[in-house]
């Protein structure tokens, strides 16, 4: 019997489901960073706003990377529904702390897919995610560095504006 199914699709459906979930998560991250950019603009943190506009774009690129992988493997990529985006932050520190929290969540999710792909013997998906594993180290590190800078600068007096100015160092 000819194996039409395997000839049409080169990853497991379980991996496909998890990757579709990750597409959603990257889209959600992109939308969240856009909301943060909006908050920064409205509260006078213009450099930070630039940083988050750029982050929003990057997250969309992550999403498209996964989307195209599903196309290439003959799977069924699903355009994500994005809901429940938070626009309320109590301070610029809150914004960056939420960013780190969000990135850690994304890292955990990617590690979980790698683990499942390994269990499934889905080498293609596992190898594909190598890039994301390394990217998450970078992303987490960037936000951690910014939070360290905030800690050193302090939020008293002109601290907040100094913080915003220094965020420029993390915009390539």
């Amino acid at each position: 019997m000819k194996d039409i199914a395997r000839q049409s699709m080169s990853i497991k459906v379980e991996s496909m489901d998890l990757l579709n979930g990750q597409i959603k998560m990257e889209a959600h991250a992109s939308a969240t960073y856009l909301a943060m950019a909006s908050w920064c603009e409205q509260n006078g943190f213009f450099t930070s706003a630039k940083f988050f506009f750029k982050q929003a774009e990057e997250e969309r690129e992550h999403m498209m990377k996964i989307f195209n992988f599903l196309v290439d493997t003959g799977a069924n990529p699903i355009s994500p529904e994005v809901t429940g985006i938070n626009h309320d932050y109590s301070s610029i520190v809150d914004v960056f702390e939420s960013t780190l929290e969000h990135e850690v969540k994304v890292t955990k999710s990617i590690h979980n897919i790698v683990k499942k792909a390994r269990e499934l013997g889905d080498f293609a998906t596992e190898r594909f995610l190598d890039w994301f594993v390394m990217e998450q180290i970078e992303e987490e590190n960037t936000v951690r560095d910014i939070l360290d800078m905030i800690e050193v600068t302090g939020t008293e007096g002109v601290g907040l504006q100094m913080i915003d100015n220094q965020v420029a160092n993390w915009i390539e």
Partner: peptide
């Protein structure tokens, strides 16, 4: 069917949304 087709292991039920 996807298990029979060899595209699923069947054990991990992952679709939720």
């Amino acid at each position: 069917s996807f298990v029979s087709l060899g595209l699923s292991v069947g054990a991990l039920e992952t679709i939720t949304s």
